[in-house]
Design a protein around this nucleic acid. Structure first.
Lengths: 340, 340
DNA sequence: ACGCATTTGGACACCGGTGTCAAAAGGTAA
DNA sequence: TTACCTTTTGACACCGGTGTCCAAATGCGT
C-alpha cells in the first residue's frame, strides 16, 4: 500500500513499475541500453509518483555532488555578480546549484584552503574567474582533485583545458582607433595591476594601436592602478600633472575611469570637452556617472553561461576554448580635443 | 595495513583507535556522553590520519546538507553581493558552503520552483533577502520543508522567527533633520516601489520627520521609483518640473539618487549649490559619483554575518531578532539652499 | 528446433555516515 | 558478593542511490 505523504524513493518507483532499482537508475541516468518501452513505462511511473532522485544519495554513491562552484578573487565585485547571473542562467531548470567561494589570492594557505574546500564539497566542477584563473597551481589542483574546471579570460593554455575569454586586446585597439579618429594624439593609459593578464592584454592593445598610428607613448602617458576607484584618482592625478598633457585617457576598467572623472572634476577639467575618458567593462557605474561613459562592453553573462555549460553539458564541452566579442559602447565621455 | 593514498573513512579511524564507527561518529558530533579519554584517543587518531568526514554521507544519513542558501530577488544587485560577503565571512572556517539562488518574484511558479529547489538541495538553512523576505508564503514553505530560515530587513513577525533588520526609519528621520538644519524647507522624496517594506519604512521616516518639523509634503513633493537608476531620472524630472520646486531631494536608495544627479546635471542644475540630494544604502555609486553623495549606510555585511550565525550557531540563535544601526554618511551632496 | 552472440534486467554489495537499542562496564548500596 | 542503576560503547539496520556481474531474454544463422 502506498504510504501517506512519504517522499517516493527509487524503490517505490521500481516496485510500482515492476522492475528493479537498477533499471530505474538506468532510466534516470539515460543509459542507452534500455528497451524503449521499459523506459517509457518507468518514466510514466516516475511522473505519476512525482519521484525526484535524492541528490545526497547520488552524491554519496558517485563521489561527486551536483554543485557548480564559482571561485573568485576579484577586485571588481560587479563582475562577479554578473558572472553569477550567467551561471545561474545556465543551470536554471537543471538539478545543479551554484556554490560561491571567494579566494584570498594573497594568503599563503590559499591552495590548502581550496583543496580542503574541494575535498569537502566534492563539486561537479568549478568556474575560475580572473585574476585567480591565471594561477596554474589552482588549475592543477582542480585536476588533481578530479574536479572539472573552466578558466575564464586567461591566456591560451593546453589544448585540453576549458577556457572562455573575450578579445580584450583587439577591442582596446578599437578604442584607440576611435580616439584617434576624433582627433586625439596625446592619449594616456591607466593600466591595471601588474601581473594581471587582463591588464597586460589591455596594455598590449593600447600599445599596439598607438604604435600603428605612429603615436608616442612616453612614460608620462602611463600610470598604473589596481582596478579600484581610488587608484584611478591617483593615476589620473599623475597623468594630469605630468608634462604629457593628455587630451584623452584610456582606463583599463570603469572603476578607475570613474576615478579619473573624479580627479578631472575636482581640478575643474570638463569631460569630455577638455578631456576624453574611456573605460572598460561597461559596468553600471559607466552608465550612471556624468557624463555617461564611453567604454568597452563584453558579454560576461553569456560567457559565464557558456562556461557553465561546458562543465555540465557534454555537447557544449566539445569546443574546449571559446572567445566572445567585446565591443565599444559609445556614450558621451569622448569628444574631439580642443585646439592647443 | 594502511593503504596507499586512500582517503581515510570513519571505519579506518574506528579500526585504528580500537573503537566502533559509532563512537567515532559521537566524537565528530560532540556528543556529551563520551568518556573524555575515549574522546581524546579518537581525536588523536583523527588528527594523525588526517580524517575528514564525508559531507555527502552525512547529508544522506541526516537528510540535510551542510549548505546555506541565499534567496534573493533584489533590484539592487550590489546589496546582494555585500550580503554574500557577510555570509561567507560567517561560514569561513566551517564546513558550510554558500549556495546562491535567485528568485523570480513575478513568476507564478515561484513557490513551486523554490519548493523543488529546497527538496533537491535539502539545505541546512536559508537567508532570505528583501524584498522577497516579506513574502510570508515563502517563509511558511521553508518551515514546512524543515529548512531553517532568517528573514532580512522585514517587519516584526512571530516571536519565534529569525529576523535581522536595521533602523531605516529612524535613520531617514536623521536625514531630514540634517537637511532642515542646513536650512532646507522644501524637501521632496523619491519613494521606492510600492509594496516594498523598505520603501514603506523610509517613507514613514520621511513623513514623520517632515511632520515633526511642521513642513508640508504636497503631492508635488512625492515621486515614486522602482529602486533603479532610470526610475530615479524620471522621478527627479517629475519633481523638478512640478510647482513644489524642492531645494533638497531624499531618494530611497542610491541608484535612484544617482538618477536624480543625472537629471539635475542634464538640466544644468548644480548639486549641491542649487539642489541637495541624499541617497540611501551607501553603495559604491554614492562614493564614486560627483559630487560624492551624502547617504545612509547600514552594516549589511555584519547583518548578513549575524543572520548566518543564527542559522548555524545555536548560541547566536538565542536572540531571534536583531536590529543593526544605520547611520548618516556625510559627503558633499548637501549644502544650504540658495535664497529664493 | 537448436546453439550461440547480444541485449536487457536484477541481486547484491557498496558509498560513508547516523539512529536505535541492547549489552558491557563502572559505581554504589545492601 | 550480589543486586541494581547509571554511564559508556558497539552491532546492526538504514539513508537512497550506483557499479558489478551474472542470469534471463531475445535475435539470428543453420
Amino acid at each position: 500500500m502506498p504510504e501517506a505523504n512519504h517522499k517516493p524513493t527509487i524503490n517505490d518507483v521500481a516496485r510500482v513499475a515492476g522492475v528493479s532499482k537498477k533499471t530505474v537508475s538506468r532510466v534516470i541516468n539515460r543509459s542507452p541500453l534500455l528497451k524503449p518501452e521499459t523506459r517509457t513505462k518507468v518514466e510514466d511511473v516516475i511522473a505519476s509518483l512525482g519521484y525526484r532522485p535524492n541528490m545526497q544519495a547520488r552524491a554519496l554513491a558517485m563521489g561527486r555532488n551536483f554543485l557548480l562552484g564559482l571561485l573568485h578573487d576579484n577586485p571588481n565585485a560587479q563582475t562577479v555578480l554578473n558572472f553569477q547571473f550567467g551561471v545561474l542562467d545556465a543551470i536554471r531548470d537543471t538539478e545543479f546549484a551554484l556554490v560561491v567561494r571567494p579566494v584570498d589570492r594573497r594568503s599563503p594557505r590559499m591552495l590548502d584552503d581550496i583543496r580542503s574546500f574541494l575535498e569537502v564539497q566534492r563539486l561537479y566542477g568549478v568556474l575560475i574567474l580572473p585574476p585567480i584563473s591565471e594561477n596554474d597551481d589552482l588549475a592543477n589542483l582542480c585536476r588533481e582533485m578530479g574536479c572539472g574546471y573552466v578558466r575564464m579570460g586567461s591566456a591560451q593554455l593546453d589544448d585540453d583545458e576549458h577556457l572562455v575569454q573575450s578579445n580584450d586586446r583587439e577591442c582596446v585597439e578599437n578604442v584607440i582607433d576611435h580616439l584617434v579618429e576624433q582627433g586625439h594624439r596625446r592619449i594616456a593609459i591607466i593600466q591595471g595591476p601588474e601581473g594581471f593578464r587582463s591588464a597586460q592584454e589591455r596594455w598590449e592593445g593600447f600599445s599596439a594601436a598607438m604604435h600603428r598610428h605612429g603615436l608616442d607613448v612616453p612614460a608620462d602617458a602611463i600610470a598604473r592602478g589596481n582596478y579600484r576607484f581610488d587608484s584611478g584618482i591617483a593615476a589620473a592625478e599623475k597623468l594630469l600633472e605630468g608634462s604629457f598633457r593628455p587630451t584623452a585617457i584610456f582606463a583599463s576598467n570603469d572603476e578607475m575611469a570613474a576615478g579619473a572623472f573624479h580627479m578631472a572634476r575636482s581640478r575643474g577639467i570638463d569631460v569630455p570637452s577638455e578631456l576624453s575618458i574611456v573605460g572598460f567593462d561597461d559596468s553600471p557605474i559607466a552608465a550612471h556617472i556624468w557624463p555617461p561613459m564611453t567604454t568597452v562592453g563584453w558579454p560576461i553573462r553569456e560567457m559565464a553561461k557558456a562556461a557553465a555549460l561546458k562543465l555540465i553539458d557534454p555537447s557544449e564541452a566539445e569546443a574546449k576554448q571559446s572567445i566572445f566579442p567585446a565591443r565599444l559602447v559609445r556614450r558621451s565621455s569622448v569628444a574631439p580635443p580642443q585646439r592647443d
